[in-house]
Structures are given as C-alpha cells and as structure tokens.
Design a protein around this nucleic acid. Sequence first.
DNA 1: AAAATAGTGTCTATGAGACACTATAGT
DNA 2: ACTATAGTGTCTCATAGACACTATTTT
Lengths: 249, 249
Amino acid sequence: MDERQDPHQEERQFLAGYDPSQFDRPSLAVDVATLSLSQGHLWALVVKRHAHPFKGHWALPGGFVRMDESLEEAAERVLGDKAGLSGVFLEQLYTFGDPDRDPRTRIITVAYYALVDWGRLEGRQADREALVARVHVPWKGETGGPVDLAGPGGALPLAFDHADILGMAVKRIRGKLDYAPIGFQLLPSRFTLRQLQEVHETILDSPLNKDSFRRRMLASGLLVATGDREQDVDHRPAELYRFARRSAI
Amino acid sequence: MDERQDPHQEERQFLAGYDPSQFDRPSLAVDVATLSLSQGHLWALVVKRHAHPFKGHWALPGGFVRMDESLEEAAERVLGDKAGLSGVFLEQLYTFGDPDRDPRTRIITVAYYALVDWGRLEGRQADREALVARVHVPWKGETGGPVDLAGPGGALPLAFDHADILGMAVKRIRGKLDYAPIGFQLLPSRFTLRQLQEVHETILDSPLNKDSFRRRMLASGLLVATGDREQDVDHRPAELYRFARRSAI
DNA sequence: AAAATAGTGTCTATGAGACACTATAGT
DNA sequence: ACTATAGTGTCTCATAGACACTATTTT
C-alpha cells in the first residue's frame, strides 16, 4: 500500500535465483533437557556420545535441524530417536550460540526442555546408552548456573555447554511453577495432593505449607476430583485428582 | 573417567577433517524488536526493506549471524547498523523457526527485544528509512497474538512473522514487569515515581493504585532518591529517583 | 487564594501461614 | 486401641487497595 505496485515478476526471479550457500553459515541443532522427578530429587535424561567431539561423555539428546521440519518437530524427533520418548510436554527454553561452544564448527543450538512422569523413565538407570542421572542444583533462588549430574559411579562429565542448559531448565520450571501448570506434567494422570506438593517442594527445593498449598491448588480450578482414592497405603487413603485440561480456561 | 583414555590424536584428526557443508542447513538470523514508550502508548522501531522479499514493507531490524560473533553480538550489531542504537537493554526473546516463515529458503531467526528511553528515538517518526510506529496490542491478559502497527498513513504491513515477534515481546515484558527491573529501561536515568507508574500502566494496559505502587517500588530497594526534584512543572515538583544498579543485590 | 500533584497515615479486605481438631485407613 | 496421614475450621499476620489528610509548587 506504500510505494508503487510491487513487480511480482521481479520478485519471482529474485527468489528463483537465490543461492543460500553464498554465505558461510552456522549450523543449527536442537538439544532437549528432559527432567523427571523421583524420591524427592530431580533427574535428567542423558545419552552417551559415540562420536567426536566429547566421545564417551554424556550429553543431552540432540541433533541437527532438518530443512523441512519446525524446531519443535526436530526436538520431538530427537527425543523419540535418542530416548524413545514421544508425546511428552515440550517447550522451547533458550538458544545457545557462543562461537566456541562446539569445537567442530559454529553450531547454534535451540534448547528445549521436556517434563515426563517418572514411570516413563524407570529402568533407564541400568541402560548403558540412555542414562537417567540425578541433577544436583548447587544454588538456591535466582542466581542460576550450571548443574552437576550424579551418575552411578560419581559425577558425570557433561559434553558441550549442556550443564548450562540443564541449569537454565531447572531455573525455568522454578520460575513457571506457580503460574503455569508445570507440576502436573511430572505426575501420572491421577495423583494425590500430597504427591503434587512433593513435586513442588522438589522443584523449589524448599518445604511448603500444607494447608496453604491445598487451598491454592483447589482454588486454582486446575484440579478435578475423581471421586476415587489411592490404594494400598498404610494410612488413610487420599483422594485422587486429575489435571483439568486447559480447554476449560 | 569412564571408558578407555581418549585418543586425542584421533579426535584432532576428526576435527581437522570435519566438513560442515556436507549437510543442507537452515540459515540463521537475528531480529530485534525495539520497544519504547511515549504518550501512554508503546512504540516499536521498524525499518523499510529495500530488497526482496517483502520489498517496501516494514520489518524489524535484523540480519544474518556471522561465523565469529555470538547471538547477542549479532543483535547489537544489527541494532547499531540498521537503527543507529547502541548500549541499550537487550535480551533474548524466542527463536522462530517455522519452515515457511521466509519465502527465500529456510531461515531461522533468534529474536531479541530491546527497551529504550523515548528520548533516543525522538525524531525518527519523520525518517523515511527507520520509522517508529505505535504498537497496538489487540489483546488483554495472557492470550497473546500478533500486534498491529499504526503508521502515519494507517496500518503498517509488517514483513515475515514480525507481528508475532512483536506480540511476544509485549507479552514478555508484561510478564517480567513485576519481578524484573524492566520499567527503568524505558525511562531516562532520573525519573519520578509518577513517570514509572505510567510506564507500568502503559505496559500492562490497566490503571494501578498509586499508594500501593509507591510502597511496592520504594520497598523493592531498586530505587535510590537523588535529593533533586523535577523542574518546570506547574504543580508541586516530585523527587527524582534513579535505578539502583543490581550490583547492590 | 486556587489549582494541581506530591507524599503520609490509617483503616480494611484478602490471602498465606500456624495450629488445633476431626476423619479414615492399616496394623 | 494405636499410628499415620487426609482433610477442615479458625486465628493471626503480612500486604494491597481505599481514603483522608497534609505539603509544596505555579498561576
């Protein structure tokens, strides 16, 4: 609507003759930080690298972005191929692009984080290819920083800047916990209020007031009582709730 | 520490022979959504495109990422080259990577947002190359969506998915406003509490309680009274405050 | 003096934490 | 009956909003 009428013919010619290889370009990858929760601790899924660089180290599942897939599709594909997970909660985290973060060449990575119920990761600790390791977060509050991973035989050396990515993932879910339905993603479809509170306490790494937590959660409108109760516990069984799908909002 | 000792010789050979051009790769760009504030409205800085595609349309300042610069350095460079701005608050926003977001080829863009004092943009409205247009945000609350830009002669057609980028920038600063020192970036170095409240009200698009706002801001510890007062106003002059640099935290 | 905004003190409503109490399961 | 946890009712405390009031500038 401004300028003279666009000569579409000219634009078509330009597009047909466009050569994307005329510039040196960085490579683009995705990496996925998959977090889960068990025994009052956060766990992350890492896979063993079979190729250089960082051969033999542990890394987040990742891969190069293909020409015909979106970033989120790439993250889903990588999670399926390298970790056998599909249909999990997945959200973009941050894009890491320091020029020297990869010794091969310039590789920028769009990091995603995934949250999965512990039941879907169980057994992976024995697996020698995809390992679930406990995340130790050496900081409280907002200062941030990379995390340590505790493996079966001591600290795990992480490849690239993946410790930073994991640290930012933990920081992100801490920040979103009280205004986004994060905690539900780490539980099975039906859960008790006590379980949900333990999820929050583990993520925040601090104890929460039981009464206040119950009130907040029930008042949020995100929980639906199922009428059923938990089974096989050696005390009074608690009511099972499920997450009210956001369609109601 | 796991596996046999890494043969560094082998790794060096691998890195020397690595050919990044063996795969078809997307291109990588940065785009910067620069927001400012005046007369109770948000404004965004856009530049006119002289090349295809979207020739003649308005777009956010952007450019391809060079091999030797970080993403943030690329954003700073682009902002300096295309908009003549330097030293402004800049933060990564989101990475947009839909396969068809650019008609040329696959181009992923890492979007940044910048916040600048209105004083640094003044006069740009007359400029035919870099234009400062008013942002109309057609949504309240959290639903999000693209924005409209109001130019001197009506609505401005924005190139690519830049309306989505601007929409996400507005959503982001709304979300961060009450826990991050966002508002100060949109004001000159010394400002009154009333000015700061107007910044918050404009970003949130809703009126705020004066008393409560004063208390919150003064209790936050982020403000330092200068002892000076504003000049040339036709009523009682207010005290001028400055932003307490985060070094104190 | 009038007008306009800056800034203070106090009351009230709301929501979180603390605590006491009752309810219901297994042993 | 005893123990452990689920779940409820009530009090208190901290914080935001409402409102009344005083203070200080220009016209």
